[in-house]
Computed example of a mutant assay.
Amino acid sequence: MSTAAQVPQVTFAHVSGVSWPRSGHHLLVRLLTGYFGPAFVYCEHHVGRPTDPAIPACCRQSPCAHADRVVFTKNHDFALAMPQLPGKRYLVQYRDFAPSVVSNFELAVREGLEDTPESFRRFASERFTPYLDFLSKWVTSDFAQGEAVLPLPYEDLVSAPVEQLDRAVRHIAPGHVPDPARLRAVVARVDAQRVADRKIEVLQNAGVHASRDVTTFRFYDRPLFGLLGALTLRRQEVAQTFQDLLGRPPAEHNMLAFQAYETREALAAFIRSTPEYRNRQVSPAPPAEQSPTPRKFTRKRHNDRLGCSQT
């Protein structure tokens, strides 16, 4: 597979990669590099330089100023400022929230974030807002449904890597018919990476493997991860609802449970049912130290019923 004669000769179309963090972007880059060989030129918009030494530095523009030579770029679009341009190709990677936030937390701890259950709960709560914003712009919007945008969920990439690599190859090299044997060989020998327990481990030639089981995470708790799978509301929505109705912020230890209410209206209805709210209507009192405890409830998400325990 390493001989030049086996490297496919293709005409590339520049593709802008947009990815939610920890959604398999670098795995995909390694797969594409293994398939196309050195002709596949990549640039990581946030920190890198193009893999073509003839290009001295990343242009830090979107669309890429070197689109005639750079095939694929990376952008997390943290500021939601990346343009969505008709006629341009995009490849969007994302992942279920719970495993992505666990992996992201591991990296944050390596960079100095406090490694405690409380820190993880707050980190997950805060990261859910940008996660929703990313999905809204790049996954569920009208633009994201267009033919020029290829969605590639992480779960699909690791469960059916040959099929998903085939899709990516066709998107990047229109008109090229992927070589099934080459696809399988690349998938079987690609380097892998494991991020767990505050460590990053490179697994050489390990091939694509199943994603990490979140139940092995040191702060795993079944009710907690039930909440992570049921989150709907942004922190800001919860905070504003509490401020409007109770004149104070919610208690941090209950924040995730409040974010798991299906709608802001449902959360407001719960708050209005509490003694604290009723007492305020009779005689406004100073803010209490504790938030009302969310009631147990169930909601539908991704066609499953998830029970969310009290916190």
Rank of each mutant, 00 (worst) to 15 (best):
S2Q: 14
T3I: 06
A5M: 06
T11D: 15
V15K: 00
V18N: 03
P21G: 06
L28M: 15
L32C: 06
Y35K: 01
F36P: 09
V41W: 01
Y42Q: 05
C43L: 01
E44C: 13
R49L: 08
R49G: 10
P56R: 02
C58K: 07
A65K: 12
K74Q: 08
A79E: 14
L85V: 15
L85P: 00
L85F: 09
P86E: 15
P86T: 12
G87P: 03
Y90I: 08
F97C: 03
F105M: 01
E106H: 03
E106A: 00
E106Q: 14
V109D: 01
T116K: 08
P117Q: 10
F120Q: 02
R122W: 08
A124F: 07
S125C: 15
R127E: 11
P130F: 05
Y131P: 00
F134A: 12
A144G: 05
Q145D: 03
A148R: 12
A148C: 08
A148Q: 15
A148F: 00
L157A: 02
V158Y: 07
S159E: 11
A160H: 11
V162A: 13
L165V: 11
D166G: 00
R167F: 09
R167C: 09
A173I: 04
H176Y: 10
V177I: 08
P178Q: 11
L183C: 03
L183G: 00
L183D: 09
D197M: 08
I200F: 00
E201A: 10
V202D: 07
Q204V: 04
A210S: 11
D213W: 02
D213N: 12
D213E: 09
F217Y: 13
R218Q: 12
D221F: 06
R222W: 01
F225E: 11
R234F: 07
R234I: 04
R234N: 10
E237P: 08
A239S: 13
Q240Y: 09
R264Q: 15
E265Q: 15
E265M: 11
A268F: 05
F270W: 04
F270P: 07
S273D: 13
E276L: 08
R278G: 03
Q281A: 10
V282S: 14
P284V: 13
P286M: 14
P287I: 07
E289I: 00
P292A: 09
T298Y: 11
H302E: 11
C308I: 15
Q310D: 03
T311Y: 14
